[in-house]
Design a protein around this nucleic acid. Sequence first.
DNA 1: CTGAAAGCGCTTACAG
DNA 2: CTGAAAGCGCTTACAG
Lengths: 338, 338
Amino acid sequence: MTRQQAPTLRTVAATAGVDVSTVSRVLNSGPGDRARWAGPETVERILRTAEELGYRRNPHAASLRTARSQLVGVVVPRLQDFVLATIFEGIDQAGAELGYAAFVTNSLDDDAQRQARVEQLLSRRVDGLVLCDARTDDPLLQMLDERAVPYVLALRRSGDRVGAYADEVHGGRLVAEHLMQLGYRDPAVIAGPEYASTANDRVDGFRAALRAGGLNLSDDRVVRTGFDADAGRTGVAELLARGPAPDAVFATNDFAAIGALGALRERGLHVPDDIGVVGYNDTPLADSLPIPLSTVRSPVLDIGRAAFTLLEHHLTNKPHPTVTFTPTLIPRATTRPR
Amino acid sequence: MTRQQAPTLRTVAATAGVDVSTVSRVLNSGPGDRARWAGPETVERILRTAEELGYRRNPHAASLRTARSQLVGVVVPRLQDFVLATIFEGIDQAGAELGYAAFVTNSLDDDAQRQARVEQLLSRRVDGLVLCDARTDDPLLQMLDERAVPYVLALRRSGDRVGAYADEVHGGRLVAEHLMQLGYRDPAVIAGPEYASTANDRVDGFRAALRAGGLNLSDDRVVRTGFDADAGRTGVAELLARGPAPDAVFATNDFAAIGALGALRERGLHVPDDIGVVGYNDTPLADSLPIPLSTVRSPVLDIGRAAFTLLEHHLTNKPHPTVTFTPTLIPRATTRPR
DNA sequence: CTGAAAGCGCTTACAG
DNA sequence: CTGAAAGCGCTTACAG
């Protein structure tokens, strides 16, 4: 059996005995206003014929005509990262509900790669972009602004650009309050890279809450590394090299926290008895580790959904103000009362 | 500043003083055979003009005309799974090199969802599909066969359909040989769901190698659960409920292995002293766990790349036989000589 | 309420 | 080597 010749609007029109324009109008109207375009029995006949023939509109023809592709492009640092994969899923879900399809692509937080990926997406004629890899200072965004390309941000902020975010400052604050409440007095931070607003905001919130609680986070209690397990190991090594061990470590990412856990173990420091550890993101594994990890969870699926909605509002000239979601602290076994 | 009016072939043709057909032919030829379509200085002029005007072909117009979209659809069980995200990345990379773009979507291993996702992809007029969620018995694939939709499989097999796979039987064998070599004599298996060929093949290879080594894997040493950490916990509970503890556990997935690690710990069984544990996939975290996990690694990026190549060969009527990649054992701290 | 026509931006036989 | 023409499958003013 060979691939069936896909029926076109013309086929449907001929079979139903009406003009293609009528079929087009009926098929593109909601159940509510179909009556505006054809008599009830004509509508019924068209619908039935399209159904029987298995008609599907050719999106390329429609795009060509309307100059709208119903396609969006999503740029993430790494799709292998659970948080980003989930944000994409949210975008994809919300998009599908409105007839949009989404392309995703990895930027690897690399300038050249980001640039190339965005150009490819634009070549594919996406209607707009969701960028999940914004930098605090970001020339790419300026370029998009100049070219008037519709886009929104997600997760990572840049200036006061519109996007769907988690309240990372609040997240950092939750961690500090949790630690203070348990009696920790000398915490340290292993933070992600400077170009990510998320890492910065978490540290800021953490520091502010500590101060409000009468504690000071000195510079030698903060180390900036990356987002992976290796960063956690390096971070612990660095902190311990600087002097006496802190009584808790806040890693701004679960992977870094897990790396830290390993490094602490090698040095004979017991968690949570000798030292507390808190991560960020609530990675699926956090719950299932031999010592379940205390961490912070943000509603990342919702962030993805909201980002798409923002973009769609942008594309249809509706208001689309920034939205911010609130994270929650998930206390588990790597912290406990002292 | 408003979005620039995108230059079309017509603009380029007018500016260069030639016909659109000439521009089209020149732009669509490789550097080698451009000379077939225009004189050298004409070619040069066209290329320069297109460059200066920032011309990009409208892919929707091209698709409409050629009935080829240069789009492929990828269906994965879950993009949140590192292995699947990496396979997608391979497909996307290899596709981009040949001018293809890829859509990904989650099937969640759910029949209705898979069906719906595939239909959406087909509505978008993808040229073909890469399916990473095939089942041992799979009605969806039969449907695609009947409709003559071009597709290839990746990772999970179904019958003898063409795809890019890892030699999972070999992977299972590697685990068994590793354990026997270290002196383990009574291993158990926590296996993924029956509908996934990967889980079945790993168990088959494991069992065969054990037998070759004079060991027998009895039925009560095998428990079938799922692919996540919870499955690992449940698996351990089930195994221990059946009688004396095994001296090793092979979980066919790292997440399950990590869940197992947690459950063993709660029961006071020390890894690797009391019991060895081996996972599968070499998840990023495996290396960084407090007790680094022994596991098996398959070249999943290559599997993704190969899957795309297979599909592209299919689409262009070139031979495209199944390809199989060989996994490697990564011994770490959850197993050791007894 | 329905139809006829134009045109979106390409590619590709067909001529010359 | 280059051009003129047709047509892919839609949508949308414009008529009536």
